[in-house]
């Protein structure tokens, strides 16, 4: 439809998640209009990220070197391991500033309908890491949805015999939420996981 290179750019942009043909066209023409340096900066950061970023050899977080910044940090507690589905979940947990241990990224959650079983996740690597007896607690920090819960139950059963303390993140009502609008499953869990308070 457009001259060769523009159409190519529109097609490439259109492959990005959440970008439809119309948005792809708009972005392509925006790039055409901006100063050359600005467009090249985008191109070089894409090239750089593809060249320099890889997966941490220990936890499979995104990393610049062999080990990610967290695995490489001697101040982190190596006895507690937090298991997450995706590197983005690490960012979410880090934002809480409540966790000072290390992570293990599974690379997804069990999803039989999509053909994702334990073999497709980094469960074997996890078992290898747990051979290190310094680890005394594993926190199952998968999403609180059907697939995430199934993954947590699977890991709990798999890791149970290792004699390590296995915990699951709590689930309940969001801060600032409203009981009236809470769904039954969430409110039920919040009740089941209630804690004693002292005045």
């Amino acid at each position: 439809m457009f001259a060769g290179p523009i159409q190519e750019l529109v097609d490439e942009l259109g492959r990005l998640p959440g970008v439809g043909p119309k948005s792809a066209q708009r972005i392509a023409f925006h790039l055409l209009e901006v100063p050359k340096e600005e467009a090249l900066r985008l191109a070089s950061s894409i090239a750089e990220v593809k060249e320099r970023i890889r997966l941490c050899e220990r936890c499979f977080n995104v990393s610049e070197g062999e080990l990610c910044a967290i695995c490489d940090d001697s101040r982190r507690d190596p006895t507690v391991l937090c298991i997450v589905e995706d590197p983005r979940d690490i960012v979410a947990v880090e934002r809480t500033r409540e966790f000072h241990g290390t992570y293990h990224v599974l690379g997804g959650a069990l999803n039989p309908i999509e053909g994702v079983g334990p073999e497709q996740l980094r469960v074997r690597d996890l078992l290898e890491r747990l051979a290190d007896d310094r680890i005394s607690e594993v926190i199952l920090c998968t999403n609180p949805n059907l697939e995430g819960e199934a993954t947590a139950m699977y890991l709990a059963r798999l890791l149970g015999p290792l004699g390590i303390r296995i915990t699951r993140i709590a689930s309940g009502l969001p801060v600032g939420g409203d009981l009236e609008y809470a769904d039954e499953l969430t409110l039920g869990r919040a009740l089941a996981g209630r804690r004693e308070v002292s005045g």
Partner: peptide
């Protein structure tokens, strides 16, 4: 049927 061939139970 993908899920019929993929038992999520360990072992």
């Amino acid at each position: 049927l993908r899920s019929a061939h993929l038992a999520p139970g360990p072992g």
